[in-house]
């Protein structure tokens, strides 16, 4: 029980990171972006490329920070992945979503995002192949916290949780303490009014894509660090990330964080009640349950 909750919190941290970006995108651009989770895959693969490149250039980077399996090379690669994934998010927007936004409604955007997801995923397959890859072959061993009840934690997962919380705090400060944060919130509240007040909408949209892209890059890399990397990770993450966003309420960063933890914990606890075969349905049962009581999500604003 305690173990399941703990596991849920650790998985939830990664889902939360992914959900923050999605909730901002869905709020400002007002469409369900099904290509969003592919940004996780882009980030993780970019990190993989540099992670393999750095140790060749600077061998010292290849030692792991004990007790983590994270190496200096990977930490650096993750930063590069954040930048490059943020940029690719902006490029994808300019190539596809911007054009459609100018001509059509949100539904066209939803379907375009499906198409974009298909393209990205299969381009990754063409370049990297289907097979599973790892940053480190070493298996991260769990530390026993308590024997009765048995509670195990992996150092990597604690690191993931800490990093995720730190990034969330940073984002919180940006959104509440900076002019940029105010502008962003103004755009989200009322795009036309914000423009009248001198906020450049296109800059804001690009900024949101950069934030979403870089957070996804971190989420993707951390996921690949604690599990494995294959071209399907975007596909695998899509549903939990959406669930977290909706449970939290679209547009609410704190809701997304909480939603991520709820989805993570509930999926862990679900196995105590449901047979494991039903695990994929779990995020949706949570969504349904939350929406039945709060149709706008936990932190969503009342519509209409």
């Amino acid at each position: 029980m305690i173990q399941s909750i703990l596991d849920g919190i650790l998985t939830g941290a990664i889902i939360s990171l992914g959900a923050i970006g999605l909730t901002l995108i869905m709020h400002i651009l007002r469409f369900a972006n099904f290509a969003y989770a592919e940004l996780l895959a882009i980030g993780a693969y970019v990190a993989l490329v540099f992670d393999q490149l750095f140790p060749v250039l600077v061998p010292a980077l290849d030692t792991a920070f004990a007790p983590l399996t994270l190496t200096g090379a990977l930490a650096l690669s993750m930063v590069i992945a954040m930048v490059l994934t943020g940029l690719s998010a902006v490029v994808i927007d300019a190539l596809v979503f911007k054009r459609i936004r100018q001509k059509a409604g949100p539904l066209s955007m939803v379907f375009a995002s499906f198409g974009v997801a298909l393209v990205i995923r299969n381009v990754i397959v063409l370049i990297f192949g289907h097979h599973a890859q790892l940053y480190s072959q070493d298996i991260a061993r769990a530390t026993v916290i308590s024997f009765d009840p048995l509670i195990l934690i992996k150092p990597d997962q604690v690191f993931v949780l800490a990093l995720a919380l730190a990034l969330m705090l940073a984002l919180h400060l940006i959104l509440t303490r900076t002019t940029f944060g105010f502008a962003l919130r103004a755009v989200a509240e009322n795009p036309s009014l914000a423009q009248v007040a001198g906020v450049r909408l296109s800059t804001m949209v690009a900024a949101v894509w950069v934030i979403a892209g870089s957070l996804s890059a971190v989420a993707g890399t951390l996921y690949a660090l604690t599990n494995q990397l294959n071209p399907l990770i975007g596909h695998v993450f899509l549903l939990p990330v959406f669930a977290a966003t909706i449970v939290g309420g679209i547009g609410s960063v704190y809701g997304a964080v909480l939603g991520g933890f709820i989805v993570g914990i509930a999926s862990g606890l679900a196995l105590m009640i449901l047979p494991p075969g039903y695990a994929p349905a779990m995020p949706f049962l949570i969504i349904l349950a939350v929406l039945l009581f709060r149709p706008q999500g936990l932190f969503g604003e009342e519509q209409q």
Binding site: T11, V236, G268, P276, G277, P280
Partner: peptide, 19 residues
């Protein structure tokens, strides 16, 4: 007897159950 459904983000819960 534990069923593993493919394309799940994490098999931590299943591993915990097996343990």
């Amino acid at each position: 007897q534990i069923a593993i459904t493919d394309a799940q983000p994490s098999y931590r819960a299943e591993a915990t159950q097996a343990l």
